[in-house]
């Protein structure tokens, strides 16, 4: 199934695009999506582990499962002030 991932802040810069579509097997969880994202966009790999992931506008743990219609957002920490 194809999942659309919205990228924010530093993740958007590293990927060079605000969103990316990732193909993952049916029944995939957040952790699988992160792995697939890392191999698709290697520039993201070192930041991925520390990014928060929201599924359908709610923060989700690594074990949360994804449905084909899931709206996913990848939110890296931001420190500026």
């Amino acid at each position: 199934m194809k999942i659309k991932v919205h990228l924010f802040a530093r993740a958007k810069d590293l990927a060079g695009q605000p969103e990316v579509e990732i193909d993952v097997p049916v029944g995939a969880r957040v952790v699988d999506l992160k792995k697939a994202l890392g191999s698709r966009i290697p520039a993201l790999s070192s930041l991925l582990e520390r990014c928060a992931v929201a599924v359908n506008n709610e923060f989700a743990g690594e074990d949360a499962s994804l449905s084909p219609s899931a709206e996913v957002a990848l939110l890296p920490p931001v420190s500026g002030g």
Binding site: F8, A9, K12, S46, F59, P76, P77, S79, G80
Partner: peptide, 29 residues
């Protein structure tokens, strides 16, 4: 917090809600 054109805001006040570590348990490399 802010970065380039992106901003974040929230209110952390456990136990009514989460704290910053619930969102980001560990800092980025």
């Amino acid at each position: 917090s802010i970065f380039r054109f992106d901003g974040q805001a929230s209110v952390f006040h456990p136990p009514a809600g989460p704290c910053y570590r619930c969102l980001y348990p560990e800092p980025p490399p």
